[in-house]
Design a protein around this nucleic acid. Sequence first.
DNA 1: ATCCCATGTGTACGAGTGTACGTATCGATG
DNA 2: CATCGATACGTACACTCGTACACATGGGAT
Lengths: 179, 179
Amino acid sequence: MSRRYDPERRQRIIDAAIRVVGERGIAGLSHRSVAAEADVPLGSTTYHFATLDELMVAALRQTNEGFAKALAASGLEDAEGDLAADLARALGTWLGGDRTGVELEYELYLAALRRPALRPVAAEWTEETAERLARRTDPVTARALLALMDGICLQVLLTGSPYDEGYARDVLSRVIPRP
Amino acid sequence: MSRRYDPERRQRIIDAAIRVVGERGIAGLSHRSVAAEADVPLGSTTYHFATLDELMVAALRQTNEGFAKALAASGLEDAEGDLAADLARALGTWLGGDRTGVELEYELYLAALRRPALRPVAAEWTEETAERLARRTDPVTARALLALMDGICLQVLLTGSPYDEGYARDVLSRVIPRP
DNA sequence: ATCCCATGTGTACGAGTGTACGTATCGATG
DNA sequence: CATCGATACGTACACTCGTACACATGGGAT
């Protein structure tokens, strides 16, 4: 690997792309808008990311890693006790503050629906998160919990209704088999 | 309501918009692409739908109505017995055949995430479907079932994995309180 | 019969886009 | 030091887009 003149150039472009998606949505993502946001010339974005798909893949991968780190840092994986309560609280923390970040991540995640290039990344994230969750329950339940959490988030984000942690805890606990 | 020269013009434009989204995605939706698909001049699409948001609202509303009718026709609402099995079967039928229609409806539905104009329509659909589901259970469970089905569909569509009806039936039944 | 306005049509403009390409610059390699 | 490839930069082209606007037309109201 040879050193670059600006070794962080590529990373700065990815960060800028994430900011652009957060502010204007995927519809507002273009080589030019990212270049302006990152304060680099147009040729620089097209050089590092020949297509917008490549750029979105990099952005989605980065947000996924950020989420995984946050999850790991929360100590949720290794704890014991009421899993449903832990998940409901984690969801509350995630949805509680500024929802710009949440909408951003979901938009990139859901973009995989029609962009084949993003699918492997989205699938990988699902697989990995399910695996982490499975440490505190069985694989089938882990997938179901993930699906239910996805659905709950979707309802909250789409309808604009406030997040009800008690409700989430209740229905999540139903999915977990009683020993 | 005054008669138009071409009374079906507006409807033809909506149908064309749905076909365009199905084939090229929302990213491929424009006044011009819809006009070409509907075989009408550009001015006609801009006249009936001043903005693309208006057009998407009409398209989403129409697909929602189609889904609601299909649901009603399936006789799912009024039946008795194993609700989880019925829902899992309905999901299987929906996801079973050509997935173009499914992807289309989900793409329009999820577009509400970042397009405020679509939110009321998406929220309305959620509300109405939850209400229909509540006829065979309680409101809280209905919303949870809806969320879980959304999540399951999302996992199937995003990862490209095949739909497992047995799995869906299992986890759906967990959400329904045992009497 | 006449007028009005919703509806329909064609065209043009400016803005923004992906893409391509020539050139410049730096770091490493020999 | 000479060379070469990776990286960086600037510009130009062809294309699509939303929008605006002038004009045509026919049905309903008066």
